[in-house]
Simulated scan of single mutants.
Amino acid sequence: MIASRLRRPSRGAVLAVLTLVGLSPTSFAADTSAAAGAPSRIVSIGGSVTEIVYALGQQKRLVAVDTTSIHPREASELPNVGYMRQLAAEGVLALDPDLILAIEGSGPPPAVQVLKASAVPFTEVPESHSAEGVLEKITVVGKALGVPARADALKAEVSADFEATAKAVAKAKTKPGVLFLLSVGSGRMLAAGSHSAADAVIDLAGGHNVLASFDGYKPVNAEALVAASPDYIVAMTRPGVDPSDDIRALPGIELTPAGKNDRIVTVDGQTLLGFGPHTAAAIRELARRIGTLTE
């Protein structure tokens, strides 16, 4: 693993990396716009995909996004094709796109099959809950947009961000137990198990998932909450909604270390779980809040 500073690398540092991989600052500067004939009416499906398009400076080529594309804020002002798993093919094609970028897992399958069978180029962006997965997303999006040098520069920056976070978290002397809640309502909890995005970020932040005994996301009751005995409870916020008080009111919460010490951490779920260009920074902030990063 390459040693990196905890701070995000400067533009100069990124350009130095580009030189090492055979790209000059001149090639980076020349890549500020897409090549002639590159797609100019793009529909982006998937929050992390849209974030990457913006990070590559290609947002002016977007004609629509999906409902998970909430970062940056300007993305939500674009026409919307609906939730990524509930797409209507005719609605997407009605926008007259010349490229569709869609995160792996978009659906429903019949709608995606129609989009793939249409005359519009369709690029599926692979989903993987890891630093390597984020870099692969950037590669695929950069290639589809015709801006590979910009993609290489962004990958250098994001890779350094992940490595700096991993290096700092590795110094932690404890590995706190974390319970991740996707939602809390009417006393019902939807929690994250293993092989999930939340499980991956808990590990990357230096914690351990106290509900790793099951896969994916499942409802849990008060008995399971108490038995899990989390040191921290991490929950997703939604626009205008902070679940902290609902969590404090959960039956049995006062019997857990998290409840006794009021260790309830709220996070922006899209940035943290989306595994996009800003996820490393979100993981670093989570690590700071669960006590595994003190620098």
Rank of each mutant, 00 (worst) to 15 (best):
V14D: 03
L15E: 08
L18D: 06
V21I: 15
L23I: 15
S27L: 14
F28G: 02
A35N: 11
I45D: 10
G46L: 07
G47S: 11
V49I: 02
A55D: 13
R61G: 09
V63S: 04
V63E: 11
A64I: 01
V65W: 03
T67D: 01
S69I: 02
I70W: 05
H71S: 13
P72C: 06
E74H: 07
A75N: 00
E77S: 12
M84L: 15
R85T: 01
R85Q: 06
L87T: 04
A88S: 14
E90S: 07
L93A: 03
I103L: 15
E104Q: 15
S106D: 05
S106F: 13
G107V: 05
P108D: 06
P109W: 13
P110Q: 13
V112F: 10
Q113V: 12
L115S: 09
A117S: 15
V120M: 08
V120G: 07
A131R: 04
I138N: 01
V140N: 10
L145A: 04
P148W: 08
R150Y: 07
L154D: 11
K155M: 01
A156W: 00
V158E: 00
V158W: 00
S159L: 05
A160R: 00
E163W: 00
E163A: 07
A164W: 06
T165D: 03
A168D: 12
V169H: 14
A170S: 07
A172G: 02
K173Q: 14
P176W: 09
P176S: 14
V178R: 00
L179M: 12
L182A: 00
V184R: 05
G187T: 01
M189C: 11
A192E: 10
S196A: 06
A200S: 05
V201S: 05
D203P: 10
L204T: 05
A205C: 09
G206Q: 09
V210W: 06
S213E: 12
G216A: 01
K218M: 05
P219Y: 03
P219C: 07
V220G: 01
A224N: 12
V226C: 09
A228P: 07
P230I: 05
D231W: 09
Y232E: 03
I233P: 13
A235S: 10
M236T: 15
D242I: 04
I247M: 00
A249R: 14
L250V: 15
G252T: 04
E254V: 09
G259E: 09
N261R: 12
D262V: 10
D262A: 11
L272E: 00
L273M: 06
G274F: 00
G274D: 00
F275E: 07
G276Y: 08
T279W: 08
A282R: 07
E285N: 04
L286R: 02
R288E: 14
R289F: 11
R289S: 14
I290Q: 02
T292E: 14
L293P: 07
T294I: 13
